[in-house]
Design a protein around this nucleic acid. Structure first.
Lengths: 331, 331
DNA sequence: CACCGCCCTGACAACGTTGTCGGAATGTCT
DNA sequence: AGACATTCCGACAACGTTGTCAGGGCGGTG
């Protein structure tokens, strides 16, 4: 910048004014400065600018999800970007991989980089560590999972109700022998979906068989193994509910291998690409992940602009998409 | 930091030393400083630190892809993160959506934020604008597509050869009437895959029918429409090659709707989730996107550590995965 | 006891930028 | 011609941190 000023024969401050598009610089000087900028490959240093600036905004926000490569979280990411990008805000994204320590470490890393705000999919048991960030006025929004031990704005699906609808969908076909395959039981989503399952079963007076309810399947293979186990039981279920996208995929594979995909009903939580082209097509309870990202980012920007206030919980609607697998009647 | 120094009764510099874990601070002082840090919710400001520091590293890198929600690019993203994260480097990701102006704007935005390096999936016709970044010694690696008008390290699939193998796979079953559905023809990948198609056909003396070769299908729906058109021809192909993940999905849908999924062979470029569970399962030429991200990031870090040098092109192997749809024989 | 060397610590300037304020030049009005 | 407003520009300090260097205290040595 010093070089630019020298070449254009003006002061540092004038270069600053031109670079920032401030008013009050004559046409002639502005073009002279711009020419010097181009000639010297000068690039405005946003980090230094931010240091001195009054509003102290870095134009950057942090996004912490379980895995940026998981389609559900990738959609959330894209939703956040859709809102951030037009405002000139860059998104730093990171994957936590269910590691509670990574969560704290990365929040800290982003805070040190002075992100303007943070969007977090909680994975640790407890988010009390966020208290110090909140005290230092860092706006934070949680998505998908309810944080514990701290009050922040949150964007959620109504997991209880959504699961209830999905299970009810099979109950309505006459199924009573329904198995449930759940994800990481330490997560609020897994617990809520399990409650939804129990509520739906109770509402119809259907018996919940403990050996047909499992937790902590994390991968396609876990769910595949779990469904294999269920299908090998002498007395097996007539329907399955899988509580997460990868689990549904594992169940599809296991049913297919057993040749039972047209015998046993299946409803899964989360939509996924190709679900409609499988045979049978897979009935799902779909969340709108991208919309969740949109809303989370909008809430975050509002907080950044308007400062603290009472925290809100925003519920994004979900819906059952009947495609075939969920409409198989019990024998 | 001033407050911390005051509370601990030391100088600024000593706080700096403790925060950075520098040697040469007595045990007693260090604990006193750390206590003050905790008490005041002090958070080290990496942006200011970076400004003053000698190496001038922000511990941040920029990643520009077509769409962070596209599974192929999401995998690249994850691959980059796998390498960056253990080094304490954060990844800023952004989607270009095939917009050439966005490419230049976002490169500029990241450069202003002083990222330590840039990983780019080129989407503009021409990357000459990178010259000024290269002059200012910003390490850049391109992935997936060959940049034009500039020399930078690049990580690629051998698209010609990979496509050739995929098409050859169908030629080997006796197919001669093969249609080709290509993506955005302005991209190097699309052009190379087309060449691979032509080369494979030529090698077997198969005739290439111009009306069976199309370009610029961008979405699932585009490819779906294109395949519908092909199937409606009085004289239709016996096999299809689709040059990109979404195009394959569109073709699967169209074939299914026409009831021809077991009549017409299909091989697609890019693997995708559930490809193995479709009926028939889809034969693909698979790229290892995550590995591409790994390699790109490793090359970038090497450049950052070792400075400029002759640029390299790294080719990531791909392979044909036969699953059924590609092994359908011509009638 | 004088001297040397080592270990800690702090004062100061600087990184690249912008907020503040004051001053020069020009134009307008009486 | 003088008073005043307006426009444009630059000097200076400051943002939060670290590199440099010098100095104080302390133990060991001749």
């Amino acid at each position: 910048m010093r070089d630019v000023a020298a070449l254009a024969g003006v002061s540092l401050k004038t270069v600053s004014r031109v670079v920032n598009g401030e008013a009050g610089v004559s046409e002639a000087l502005a073009t002279r400065v711009n020419r010097a900028v181009a000639q010297l490959d000068y690039r405005h240093n946003l980090t230094a600018s931010n240091l001195r600036r009054a509003d102290r905004r870095t134009g950057t926000l942090g996004l912490l999800v379980e895995d940026v490569a998981n389609p559900f979280f990738a959609d959330i990411h894209r939703g956040v970007e859709d809102v951030a990008s037009p405002r000139g805000v860059a998104v730093m994204a990171a994957s936590l991989d269910r590691d509670p320590e990574a969560e704290e470490t990365l929040v800290s890393a982003f805070a040190s980089r002075r992100v303007d705000g943070l969007i977090l999919v909680p994975t640790a048991q407890e988010q009390g560590y966020l208290a110090s960030e909140i005290r230092s006025a860092l706006p934070i929004v949680c998505v998908d999972r309810t944080p514990r031990g701290v009050r922040v704005d949150t964007v959620l699906t109504n997991n209880v109700e959504a699961t209830q609808q999905g299970v009810q969908h099979m109950l309505a076909q006459g199924h009573r022998r329904i198995a449930y395959i759940g994800g990481d039981s330490r997560l609020s989503t897994a617990r809520e979906r399990h409650s939804g399952f129990l509520a739906a079963m109770a509402a119809e007076g259907a018996r919940v068989r403990p050996d047909w309810v499992s937790f902590d399947s994390l991968t396609i293979d876990d769910a595949h193994g779990e469904v294999e186990r269920l299908l090998a039981l002498p007395d097996r279920p007539t329907a399955l509910f899988t509580a997460q996208n990868f689990l549904t995929m594992g169940a599809v594979r296991a049913l297919r291998e057993a040749g039972l995909e047209h015998e046993i009903a299946l409803v899964g939580f989360d939509d996924f690409l190709m679900a409609d082209l499988l045979e049978p097509a897979v009935t799902v309870v779909a969340q709108d992940a991208r919309e969740m990202g949109h809303v989370a980012a909008e809430i975050l920007f509002r907080r950044m602009d308007e400062g603290p206030g009472p925290t809100t919980v925003h519920v994004i609607p979900s819906r059952v998409i009947p495609r075939g697998s969920g409409e198989i009647a019990p024998r």
